[in-house]
Design a binder for these strands. Structure first.
Length: 303
DNA sequence: GCGTCCAGGTCTACC
DNA sequence: GGTAGACCTGGACGC
């Protein structure tokens, strides 16, 4: 028998739940669960005191999101505050996009971005989870990425009910063997990278959470991220974007193909040419490119 | 149902 | 510094 509770989460001015969740692929990766057309987002989350909770977030009053909570154990005040912080982080509420919107004001072709409040995206409550998920997107189809994330939760996460599990902790990854990850999670050659990530975090050698809000200059930060095994140019730039840093372009095969369709008549385009095209947008170039490349998809999906 | 081919980034060895 | 090949899974395709 699960205990139920509902709380509100205040949102910043201009925040749109739909545009933050509705256009982000991360919503399809466990322990998130998004039912198409439902307008709500579910997350199975492990709290720091060991309790496991199912969080269902949906737009409530204009200035708030409603969080419906289900748990086996009673949730106290500290748990509720942790859940609010988890969702605030996951929904990128702390991102300051003022200078981004100021910048695109000078570009009428991007007026649609401000009109529907785009810019934020769904991320994970921890940098660790985002690094794991990013590694799982490399050299993999989207279906494979979803499968690996689902199996990571099923095999190594904490369980709320049968078949419903949280994202594994670094410790859980560290204690798994490469053979187990290959056989049960089917993460292939990435298994070694995932295990190594967990071990380094557990031993204190690596602290990805320190990257969040880091004062380090962007190049030093990127060098540190690139030192993680399994993280190359694309993955590092994607992780930086999940940290709210858009100084680089996260170019994968889909982005290159899309750019070529829009600007190159379908002919191959070099990364340098793409870089040159977006250089005028400075530290926001990664976000501008993401918006432009996915414009048709975003405008075709109505809230 | 089975076998083959291909797509998807990163790492490592080699030049 | 640049390049080729290996890594692994799952989907598409042909037989």
């Amino acid at each position: 028998m699960l205990r139920e509770k509902t709380i509100d989460l205040e949102v910043p001015d201009g925040f749109s739940f739909w545009t933050t969740v509705g256009f982000s692929g991360w919503r399809e990766l466990a322990p998130y669960l998004y039912v198409k057309g439902s307008k709500s987002l579910v997350r199975f989350h492990g709290l720091s005191d060991g309790k496991v909770v199912r969080i269902t977030a949906e737009q409530g009053a204009e200035d708030a999101i409603t969080l419906s909570l289900e748990s086996v154990e009673e949730l106290d005040g500290n748990d509720l505050e942790e859940i609010r912080n988890t969702m605030r982080t996951s929904l990128s509420m702390d991102f300051d996009l003022t200078s981004f919107y100021d910048l695109i004001e000078g570009y009428p072709e991007f007026s649609w971005v401000a009109e529907i409040g785009l810019g934020r995206g769904l991320r994970s409550p921890t940098v660790f989870e985002d690094v794991v998920k990013t590694i799982c997107t490399t050299n993999a189809s989207w279906g494979l990425t979803k499968g690996i994330c689902r199996r990571l939760c099923e095999k190594l996460g904490a369980q709320l009910e049968e078949g419903i599990s949280t994202f594994p902790t670094p410790g859980a990854l560290a204690s798994a063997t490469e053979e187990f990850l290959r056989r049960e999670v089917k993460s292939g050659y990435r298994s070694r990278y995932l295990m190594e990530l967990g071990v380094k975090i557990e031993s204190g050698e690596l602290d990805p959470e320190a990257w969040w809000g880091s004062d380090a200059d962007i190049s030093s930060l990127k060098t540190e991220i690139l030192a993680v095994k399994g993280v190359g140019e694309y993955a590092a730039n994607n992780i930086l974007q999940l940290l709210g840093r858009y100084d680089f372009l996260a170019l994968d095969s889909w982005m290159r193909k899309r750019f070529s369709e829009i600007y190159g008549n379908g002919e191959p385009v070099t990364d340098d040419e793409i870089e040159e095209h977006y250089a005028q947008f400075g530290r926001w170039k990664g976000l501008v490119m993401n918006m432009e490349m996915t414009k048709e998809i975003r405008l075709s999906v109505s809230p």
